[in-house]
Nucleic acid binder design. Sequence first.
DNA 1: CGTCGTATTGAGTCAAGTCAATTCCCGTGG
DNA 2: CCACGGGAATTGACTTGACTCAATACGACG
Lengths: 278, 278
Amino acid sequence: MPCGWIGRLGAAAENCDTARHDHRDDHDPLRSFAVPSRAPRRGCGVKKTDIGAAWRGLANCKGCGIRETALFADLTEGDFSLIHLPIDEIVVAPGAALYHVGDEPQALYTVRSGLVKLVQYLPNGGQRIVRLLRAGDTAGLEAALGEPYRHTAIAVHPVLTCRIPRAVIQRLSEETQHLHQQLLRRWHQAVERADAFLVELGTGSARARVARLFLTLIDEQDDCDFFGREDVGAVLGITTETASRVVAELKRQGVLDESRPNRFHCDRAALRALADGP
Amino acid sequence: MPCGWIGRLGAAAENCDTARHDHRDDHDPLRSFAVPSRAPRRGCGVKKTDIGAAWRGLANCKGCGIRETALFADLTEGDFSLIHLPIDEIVVAPGAALYHVGDEPQALYTVRSGLVKLVQYLPNGGQRIVRLLRAGDTAGLEAALGEPYRHTAIAVHPVLTCRIPRAVIQRLSEETQHLHQQLLRRWHQAVERADAFLVELGTGSARARVARLFLTLIDEQDDCDFFGREDVGAVLGITTETASRVVAELKRQGVLDESRPNRFHCDRAALRALADGP
DNA sequence: CGTCGTATTGAGTCAAGTCAATTCCCGTGG
DNA sequence: CCACGGGAATTGACTTGACTCAATACGACG
C-alpha cells in the first residue's frame, strides 16, 4: 500500500509552507492520522508520516478563479448573503485525507487544484480507487444529504480545496433553485464519472487501460502528473507489478518521456492507438 | 480487450402476451427497433426479435404497491394534484429497450418489477453493462435534468415500469421539496450502485465475481432469477465462455441448483466463501 | 425431424498474476 | 562527503487463470 509518497514529494512540503499555519484545533475536519492500514501484501510497515492539512484562510467565493466550474457557479449576490458559516480554504498534502469513509458528514469539498482519489476498501483488505477528482470537482457530496461518507478521499498531489459546511449547503439548497440544480448536476456528473471508470478503465488489456488513464490525466501540452504504481494498480484493477511493467515499457518505447519523477510528456497519438488496440 | 461480451438479445417474445395490447400509436416512447448493432464478433447475425413494450394503463401512484421505495415516495396529496400529465404503466418484454443512449430525454422510469440492464457501448463495438436495476429503482434519471440518456436501458426479465414524463418531474421538482430530496437521493443511490459495480463486480477472480453477482441477485429464499451468459460476461467484464464455465462448475459442485432454465436455488454460504476467496 | 440460438466443453496460448530479487532515489546521520 | 536505510520502481522466472478458437450438446419451435 502506498504509504511512501507521504514524505516523498518535495512539492508537498513546499506547499504546506505556503499555508499560513493557522491550524484550528477545535474541530479540524482533516484528521491527519494514518490511512487505514490494510493487510499489507509484502510486510510493508504501517506508516503515518501523514502530514495532514493546513487552513489557509477564508474563501472568497465571489472572486474564485474556478467559480464557473465549481459548485457555487451560478449563485447570485443575494444567495451569497445567505451564507453565514465560514467556508475555509484548505491545503492538503499528498497522502493526507480530506475525510474518511464512515465519518460524520460535516462538509463537502470543492477541489480547486491538485488531484484527489476516492478510495473504497475491500473486505479482503485490498483497496480500489473508485474515482479521481480534479479542479472543479466536488468530493463528499453525500454530506449534503446527511449520509455518511462512502469513500475515503485522499490527496494524491498537493491539493487546495474549499471546505463547505453541510449546513451551508443545506440552507442554500432550500433557499435557492440555483444551488439545487447544481447539486443535481454534480450527482449526474459523479455517475458519469463512475460509469466512465468502469467502462474505460475497467475494460481491455493492461496496456490499453494504462493508456486510457494517461489520456484522462493529460493536459493540453500533453504533459501529465502521474502517481505511484500502487495507485495505478488500484485504479485500473491490475497489480502493481503489471502497472510498473507497462509504464516502464511505454517509457522505453518513447511513448512516455519522464521529465522528472512521475511527470511525463506523452505521445498522445500513440496513447490513443494503444487505448483501442489489444 | 476481452471482447467476449458482444451482446445479443434474445428471449423477447413470451411475456409480451401478458400485456394488454392497448398500444398507443401517437408517441410510444418504447420504440421497439433493434438495439444499435455493434460489430458482432462471430458472424452472429444482427437480430431484432425485439418486441417492444405495451401500455398497460394509467398508473395510480397513490395506491402503488412499491410507493415507499419509489421515486414518489413522500409526495403528499397536494403534490399529486400538481400532476397533470399522465403517468403510464408500461410492460416491457425481455430484450426490449425502455430508451436508447442519446435519445431525447422525454421521461424517466420507475421499475416496479423485473430486471433492467443499463448498457454502454464501447468504441470497439463491445458492450458493457454498467448497472442492474430492480423494483424501486429509477432508470433515466438524467431526463430530469434534460440531459440525453447516457445508457440504453433494456429489460432482462419481463419488466413493469411507470413512465414519468420529464415535464412532470420538472414541475414537481420545482414545486415540492419532497421530490427534490428524492431526486438527490436517487442520484446518490445511483452512484453507490455504480461504485459497488466497480468494486464488487470488477475485482477478483472470475469465480469470485460470479459468486458476488449471484449474491446481489439472490432473494430471501435463496432463489435467483439469472440471465444469459453473454450478459453475465458484460456485467463482470469476462468472456461468455468463462461465465459459462464458472456457472456450470458451480452447478456441478452443488453450489447452484437449477430448478428451471436460469432459475437457481443457491447455497448462500458457499457463495459468500467464494466471493472473498481467490 | 431440421433449425436456430444458447450453453457447455475441450485444447492450446498468452497476458497477467505471484514470488523474489535487484536497482534507484533520496534523505539522514555519521 | 559518503555510507546506510527505507520505500518505490523495475525486472526476472515461473505459474496460471482467463481468453481464443472450435466443436458439441441442448432445448424450444415450426
